[in-house]
Amino acid sequence: MNRQSRFIVSVLAFGYAFLYVPLVLVIVYSFNDSSIATVWGGFSTRWYGELLRNDQILDAALLSLRIALTSATMATILGTMAGLALARFRRFRGRTLFSGMITSPMVMPEVITGLSLLLLFVTLQQLTGWPGQRGFGTITIAHTTFSMAYVAIIVQSRLMAMDESLEEAAMDLGGHPLRVIFDITLPLIAPAMIAGWLLAFTLSLDDLVIASFVSGPGSSTLPMYIFSKVKLGVSPDINALATLIILFITVGVLLSWLVARRRA
């Protein structure tokens, strides 16, 4: 092996170690028998059992999943509509401003987004009595607002790359504009919509900051629960939970890779 390739191999090894050693550690420690999370006390699967008996964790996970599913779906519907409007509306003065404004939730610090949404909900409650209590509803709305921007951008760029004469041809052949959207536009942007939905789903599952602002008592999402537990010291059942999440994501990524390969 010459010097150059040895260098490249060590860089590669270091890079991947940097990425994956922390994850591997979590998985290893999830099988730790000791009740002190950072001291090795032999192999055991008892924390997985513990985890299944912990109603708080299961509730939080279920809530996170419900929020992620609902907000990703809403964000995909609204974001697709926004993307369609941005890509297909005729040119007008200030169009660039509008398409720039859709990206603001992406560049805004999460703390600001969270704070402003909290203020909105509080004001709304004072004026209209809704939302009576913050929780599933408010977190879902909050997640929809910021992940919708991502969907809109993805859909818009896909539409920009699409030949507009496809839609014109469909209209020319007798398709009414609304039918043409369902016949031609939506099937062609479906991959972008799926990508957008997956991104919105991940963003929602991942979010800690915004959810902390707009949630109320008794409604903790999974990231919120984990974060609050870890503040009091790492408990081993969190390692087990993290391992399950890693497993879940790995399977998901592998599946989508297989599907993509079969399509190609």
Binding site: S165, D172, I184, L188
Partner: peptide, 20 residues
């Protein structure tokens, strides 16, 4: 008249064949 009501059809330069 909008395009979908005219008895006129067009062959586009890009052909615009529906890819799906």
């Amino acid at each position: 008249q909008p395009p979908y009501e005219r008895h006129v059809n067009m062959m586009f330069q890009s052909y615009a064949v529906f890819p799906h």
